[in-house]
Simulated assay, not measured.
Amino acid sequence: MGERAAEISAFLAAAGWATAHRTPLAGDASARRYERLTRGEDRAVLMDAPPAGDTPRFVQIAQWLLNEGFSAPAILAQAPERGLLLLEDLGDDLLSRLILADPGREATLYAEVTGFLLDLHRRPAPAFLAPLDGPALGALLTLTADHYPTLSREAALALPELISRSYARLNQETPVLCLRDFHAENALWLPERVGAARLGLLDFQDAVAGHPAYDLVSALQDARRDVAPAIEARETRRYAEAAGLEAERFGALYALLGAQRGLRILGVFARLATSLEKPLYLALMPRVHRYIERNLAHPALTDIARTVAAAYPAPTAELLEQIQRS
């Protein structure tokens, strides 16, 4: 037995789960690993993360969400300094799976997503969150310039300042808690619960204090699946109306954050495909690029659109092959 395996066995024994049956679960883009544990009628999830990683932050944000009445997984046992958590098992009903099985549920489930975000955003963001302000939004695009092929590195390096200035010009909202990686494969349907707690939450350790539109665009412009355009339009309109936000300015911010997020994702997926040898992410790039193009068609983003066109090529089949070879 290796050192890490022995450490996990000791952790599970101390938590009373030494004899549990262990089944691997699908992971995510990170180095974290998950297992479902079964002990008679009881179930739990083991999260095995790098010891120097973000497990303490996961615990901190999970506790805040739970205290506010949201459905983060309860923490049954923890050794965050070692990257080990034993979590409540929230089940398998990811929104993406439910919609794939029954496309007729898409509108209803995305309405629940919007309702959850409206409830979440009524709460003051916790003070321990890092700000995702204009400079931070711009700085996140450095990764794209470093990992995605450029037409003009000068144009690519000009984008952070353009993004930051545009955000400062448009934004008037108080920051809220943004889960950041919020989409249909990180949200579970829990119909036995009430209100916003019916949405189970996964993968929120990167949460920040940012604009209310950020998680909305994350959910509705999903890199992994196409959301019906009518549903996206309905939910963005519904959110703005319910939050009392001026529709035209909110639409510009939604487009700005969608473009920024899409550009960042191109860089993340390129890095995953090359440095971390996960080429499956290349297949998602064309969808992400379509979002970027649609967002940059907004008249408030003309300068950014021109600079993006000068900076980055579209992810054609030839370009994706080039990335995979690099």
Rank of each mutant, 00 (worst) to 15 (best):
L87Q: 05
Q63I: 03
D42K: 13
P149L: 06
E35V: 06
F128R: 14
R32T: 09
P56Y: 02
I75D: 00
P131F: 05
P51Y: 00
R36H: 08
L157N: 13
A127K: 11
E81D: 15
D89F: 01
W64I: 05
L86W: 02
R97N: 12
R123I: 13
R82P: 03
R123C: 11
H147N: 13
D146Q: 15
D42H: 12
L140F: 08
D119C: 12
P126R: 10
G27D: 14
E112R: 15
A139S: 15
L117D: 04
G69Y: 07
R57Y: 02
A130C: 09
F116I: 10
A155H: 05
E41D: 15
W64H: 12
P56T: 04
T114I: 08
V59K: 03
T114D: 00
I61A: 02
L141F: 12
A44T: 03
G91P: 07
Q60C: 07
E154C: 06
A74G: 12
L76T: 07
D92A: 15
T144K: 10
R105N: 02
R97I: 00
L98D: 00
L86A: 05
A29G: 15
G115L: 06
L90K: 02
D28P: 15
I61Q: 00
G91V: 05
L94G: 02
S71R: 03
P124G: 09
S71Q: 04
D54T: 06
D42S: 14
G115W: 06
R123W: 08
L120S: 09
L95A: 11
P135A: 14
L141V: 14
P131T: 07
L86G: 03
Q63E: 14
E88W: 05
R123P: 06
L129R: 11
L132A: 09
F70V: 09
L157F: 09
D93Y: 00
T38P: 02
R105D: 00
G69P: 12
L37H: 06
D42F: 03
R122Q: 14
R122F: 09
E88V: 10
T144Q: 10
L98I: 11
L132V: 09
D119L: 01
Y148P: 09
A136H: 11
A31R: 14
R57Q: 12
L46E: 00
L109E: 01
E154L: 08
L76P: 09
P50K: 04
L120V: 11
P50I: 01
Y34W: 14
L141S: 12
S96L: 11
G53T: 01
P80M: 10
R97C: 02
Y110T: 05
G83Y: 03
R123E: 09
L151C: 11
E81C: 08
G53P: 02
P131C: 07
E112F: 04
G134R: 08
D93Q: 15
L118W: 01
L140G: 15
P73W: 05
A79M: 05
E106A: 15
A145I: 07
T142Q: 13
E81A: 15
A101W: 01
L94Q: 05
W64D: 08
R153Q: 13
E68W: 06
T142K: 12
R97V: 01
D48H: 01
R105L: 14
T38G: 03
Q78V: 01
A155V: 07
T150Y: 03
S71D: 02
R43L: 00
G134V: 13
E112Y: 04
R43N: 01
M47I: 00
L100I: 04
E41A: 14
E81L: 10
R36P: 05
R36A: 05
A74L: 10
